[in-house]
């Protein structure tokens, strides 16, 4: 079970790629999918590497990413 999980709101994503660049672990990449607005949306290309650090969500200009962390790794976090 990966420590983190990124759920992409595909309709909010504009495929700008800032999250891909910002992710410290190379988790994200463009998928082959296009949304209704014609943007190529991102997905977790390497989910196993995700720590749920939320850096990607923090740099996302469209609030398109929700971040989940595996419960045991959240304990003690604010």
């Amino acid at each position: 079970m990966p420590k983190g999980l990124v759920i992409v709101d595909k309709e909010r994503c504009k495929g700008c790629g800032l999250c891909i660049e910002a992710c410290p672990f190379g988790v994200l990449d463009f998928s082959s999918e296009y949304n209704a607005s014609g943007y190529r949306v991102v997905h977790m290309a390497h989910p196993e590497k995700c720590t749920g650090c939320a850096v990607c969500a923090n740099v996302c200009p469209d609030v398109a990413l929700e971040i989940y962390r595996e419960e045991s790794s959240v304990r003690g976090a604010a």
């Binding site: 999980l5 939320a54 923090n58 609030v63 929700e66 989940y68 595996e70 419960e71 959240v74």
Partner: peptide
């Protein structure tokens, strides 16, 4: 989105 089992949401739209 339903919270996946065993995970906690740590970042979402305000």
């Amino acid at each position: 989105v339903a919270v996946p089992k065993g995970y906690t949401r740590v970042f979402s739209k305000p």
